[in-house]
Design a protein around this nucleic acid. Structure first.
Lengths: 236, 236
DNA sequence: ATGGTCATACTGTTATACAATAAAACCAAG
DNA sequence: CTTGGTTTTATTGTATAACAGTATGACCAT
């Protein structure tokens, strides 16, 4: 008998999953307020179930609330983005270091890069992001550190939400594939400092890309003015 | 009018707090199983409230469960301890780097060290640990990184639980104070790499101390045998 | 305008019940 | 005595309903 741990999803998990999908897909947008009764009716589950699901998303950082207030979809400030990328860089650089020093080259990451390389430049952005997630996920898991994984999970949701709103459609699959391939090669090389450096570069490229998008959006909405404090959290 | 954000505690928070205190104080010991009805009766609050409180402690890592099973107090394996210290080192070294580069010297940390220095060597271990926590907490908070703080919070509970079971009583307040003082001085110096190094040393000293305690305990229970896989999770 | 009261909608909490699951006890053959 | 299946029981997961506490905005009086 092969002990294949099979997965079941509880009701709250299902609700939480659907809800986060809705948030990532823009059904609910930053600033939107979600009341428990409303959600309870929508999913036709008791309010307590909704509450449990909400708690999960609160931990994932894709919902927020203050006491006795309804939850809302967060709008990330520039500080949030900075913070997010800073800790992500920290975690991923450590991951690179660990994998390198142990000579681990996770299969899942290799597969993810291959999938990227197969994508033509006209493919959907969503699919590309999926492989990107798969890539980094595989690296983290390969470290075997439960705490690192837990932490990464808690920021990756925020990361995804941030990307949802701060990305222009013009991702280039070929460039993306190349970057990840280089990163993976650096790990394979066994040169720890080179791998860490490659990781740092990879993440910083991703960050500048997001920043460019942010400024472009800002420019579109506020032509003329530079570096004003615009979307931030003026409307919460 | 000074906007002093005042704190209220909800029922579930109160339960969660009491419960974690009980765990830290050894009322509930590693391996102990807690059923919801039992807790519900004990605190005289409905089961739903207990469930919510449990979720909080699950996230803090001081309770665990599998689906449809009762929660239990985790017993940390050697791998857990290793992992815990590894990520803690990662976070605290990054903290040191940040504070140093920004020239921040948190007041709370200074106060905590002073408190340690006031303790005579006969003082209670609990109090010492409290200041230790206060010290590191102050450092993390001063970084201003919400994510780093969240991460630290999620491991500090586990850390405390681990210390609860893997510490001999012979902490030396004077040594403890000295170590922290050195660490703080390193940050004050502004030399980033020196501060990071000091941090690393401080944490590794703490880790070796715990490891010694573990081995001592093991030796007591298993005289003769070396490095056997003993307490680990044989009894869950 | 200012300040106070009230109405309303929502969250936080409690109570109760039932369905689904897991573990133990039990029983029945082989 | 062991294997395999059945029943029992304790416990979690889910559902329904109600009420109390809080935040918010409308309304009113000054």
């Amino acid at each position: 008998m092969s002990t294949h741990k099979l997965r079941t999803v509880s009701v709250v998990e299902a609700v939480a999953e659907q809800l986060s999908e809705d948030i990532f897909n823009g059904i609910y947008r930053p600033g939107d307020v979600l009341t428990e009764t409303q959600l309870s009716e929508r999913f036709d589950v008791p309010r307590q179930t909704i509450r449990s699901a909400i708690v999960m998303l609160l931990h994932d950082g894709i919902l927020r609330r203050e006491r006795n207030k309804s939850v809302y979809v967060p709008l990330f400030s520039e500080d949030d983005i900075r913070d997010l990328f800073a800790v992500r860089r920290l975690v991923e650089m450590e991951t690179a270091r660990i994998l390198c020093s142990r000579g681990i080259l996770p299969e899942g990451a290799e597969n993810a890069v291959r999938s990227m390389e197969r994508l033509s430049d006209e493919n959907s952005c969503d699919e590309l992001l999926k492989y990107d997630y798969q890539f980094h996920q595989a690296l983290i898991e390969a470290t075997g550190s439960t705490r690192l994984q837990k932490f990464y999970r808690s920021i990756s949701s925020e990361m995804r939400l941030a990307l949802t709103y701060f990305r222009s459609g013009d991702f280039s699959p070929s460039q993306m594939a190349r970057e990840h391939r280089e990163f993976l090669d650096a790990i394979r090389s066994g040169d720890s400092s080179a791998a860490v450096k490659a990781c740092q570069i990879h993440i910083e490229e991703s960050e500048t890309f997001v920043n460019q998008t942010i400024h472009a959006q800002r420019e579109r909405m506020n032509p003329g003015r530079m570096a004003a404090s615009m979307p931030d959290e003026a409307d919460l």
